[in-house]
C-alpha cells in the first residue's frame, strides 16, 4: 500500500525547548490515523509542520509524495485542513463558502456548482441555502466544514478536534463521513479528546512530552497496556509526562 505520510527523525526545537523529539512514523493511503496526546505534548507543532506551515529543525519528511523542504506549495495542493476553530466564514452563505474554497484550489465553476448541489443534498440543507453559515446548527456546520476541506479531493486531510462539543448523534454521523472518505482512499489524520473516537482509528499514536510513546492499532494498544478501553491506555501514558507545559 502507498505511503502518504513519511516522517523520519523529525525534530523541532524552539530555543532550548524540544517540542518534537525525534518523531518517526508512516501513514498509509486510506488509513485513519489518530494523533493523540495531552495538552502541550507537541501535537499542534507536529501538525503545523506536516501541513507545511512550519519548518522542522531537522528530519526527513515526505507528505503526499512531496518533500517538505522543497515542495511545500505542492504539498498544500494535496492536503485538506479543518479544525473547530477555523472552518467556514460565518457571514457568507453555504454556496459562497463552497465557492470561495473551491476557488482557492482552482476548481472550475462547473465543478464547484456540482459540488455545491451535492453537498446541499447530502446534508439536507435545502432550507438553509439562502442563510448565512452562522445560522446553521453547530453539528451541521462541522459536517459542512469537513466536506469543504476535501473539496479539492486531497490525498490527506488533517482534522484538528473536529467533533469538539458536538452532540453525540452528529458526532457519529461525522465519523460515518470520515469512514466514507477514507474508503475512497483519502488518508485521515485526526486529533481528538474523545477517547471512544480513538477506537475508530485504524492506528493511533500517543505523544508524551514531545515523543511518540506508543503507536499501534487500538486493539494492540489495549493488549499491551492491559486495559479494556483507550482512555485507560491514554491515562497510563500521559501520566508519565514530566513537562509542565
Amino acid at each position: 500500500m502507498e505511503t502518504v505520510v513519511e516522517v523520519k527523525n523529525l525534530v523541532k526545537k524552539f530555543g532550548n525547548f524540544v517540542a518534537n523529539d525525534n518523531l518517526t512514523f508512516e501513514v498509509k493511503k486510506g488509513e485513519i490515523f489518530g494523533f493523540l496526546g495531552a495538552n502541550g505534548a507537541g501535537k499542534t507543532t507536529a501538525i503545523k509542520i506536516l501541513c507545511g506551515l512550519s519548518t522542522p529543525t531537522s528530519g526527513e519528511l515526505n507528505i503526499a509524495g512531496f518533500n517538505i523542504y522543497t515542495e511545500r506549495e505542492k504539498i498544500k495542493k494535496n492536503i485538506g485542513y479543518m479544525s473547530q476553530k477555523f472552518s467556514l466564514y460565518d457571514d457568507l452563505t453555504i454556496a459562497e463558502n463552497i465557492k470561495f474554497y473551491g476557488g482557492i484550489y482552482g476548481l472550475s465553476l462547473k465543478k464547484i456548482k456540482e459540488k455545491t448541489i451535492k453537498y446541499i443534498e447530502a446534508l439536507n440543507l435545502e432550507q438553509y441555502t439562502k442563510k448565512m453559515v452562522a445560522e446553521l446548527p453547530l453539528g451541521i456546520k462541522q459536517k459542512l466544514a469537513f466536506m469543504v476541506s476535501v473539496i479539492h479531493e486531497p490525498k490527506i486531510v488533517f482534522l484538528d478536534e473536529p467533533t469538539s462539543g458536538v452532540d453525540p448523534i452528529t458526532r457519529r454521523q461525522f465519523w460515518d463521513m470520515i469512514y466514507n472518505e477514507a474508503n475512497k482512499g483519502t488518508t485521515i489524520f485526526v486529533t481528538t479528546h474523545y477517547m471512544d473516537e480513538a477506537e475508530y482509528c485504524n492506528r493511533i499514536s500517543i505523544m508524551v512530552d514531545g515523543k511518540i510513546e506508543a503507536l499501534d492499532t487500538p486493539a494492540n494498544l489495549k493488549k499491551t497496556f492491559n486495559s479494556n478501553n483507550m482512555e485507560n491506555v491514554f491515562i497510563q501514558l500521559a501520566r508519565k509526562a514530566t513537562r509542565i507545559d
Partner: peptide, 10 residues
C-alpha cells in the same frame, strides 16, 4: 473540562 486532555479531566 472542555478542550482539556483526558488526564487533566480525570
Amino acid at each position: 473540562t472542555t478542550g482539556v486532555d483526558a488526564v487533566s479531566r480525570k
